[in-house]
């Protein structure tokens, strides 16, 4: 092979780089995140339920929040009526975070695990964390 040595060396270097994340994290504990729901407001709820079901919120909260912000900012629609007929005021800062006042233990848990960095709180003000 013409220049064979160089090519193989180059490929090895590339492979080493490419697989770096795998062996770097090898053997490290990678526990599944458990977002906490034990805020004072949630504990006082008669029925501990979010605006939609747990499964829906888990999978689709980002889409819901996206729809919500357009709904409020662009269409002036501020009341969300879920399929059970229950109404909520659409607001990340005043509705969502009122219950989920534990951003670090709730939002950040999964977001850090998934290495996603939504910029919601670059503008929306985080609740003061209450260590309970």
């Amino acid at each position: 092979m013409y220049n064979g040595g160089k090519i193989i060396a180059g490929m090895l270097v590339f492979l080493a780089f490419f697989t770096f994340p795998f062996y770097y994290n090898l053997g490290k504990a990678n526990a599944r995140p458990e977002p906490k729901l034990n805020t004072p407001v949630i504990q006082q709820l008669a029925e501990k339920k979010c605006v939609e079901s747990r499964d829906f919120m888990r999978a689709e909260h980002m889409q819901l929040l996206n729809d919500w912000r357009d709904s409020v900012v662009r269409d002036n629609n501020r009341i969300y009526k879920n399929r059970e007929g229950k109404e909520f005021s659409i607001s990340l800062q005043n509705t969502c975070m009122n219950c989920h006042s534990n951003k670090k233990e709730f939002c950040d848990k999964c977001h850090n695990y998934m290495a996603v960095k939504p910029y919601c709180f670059s503008c929306h003000i985080e609740p003061k964390e209450n260590k309970s």
């Binding site: 939609e52 079901s53 829906f56 689709e60 889409q63 729809d67 919500w68 709904s71 269409d75 002036n76 629609n77 501020r78 009341i79 969300y80 009526k81 879920n82 399929r83 005021s89 659409i90």
Partner: peptide, 13 residues
């Protein structure tokens, strides 16, 4: 989503 929240609506206050 279509199944889950098809009856959800948004309205002005």
């Amino acid at each position: 989503r279509g199944l889950e929240a098809s009856q959800a609506t948004v309205t002005p206050d």
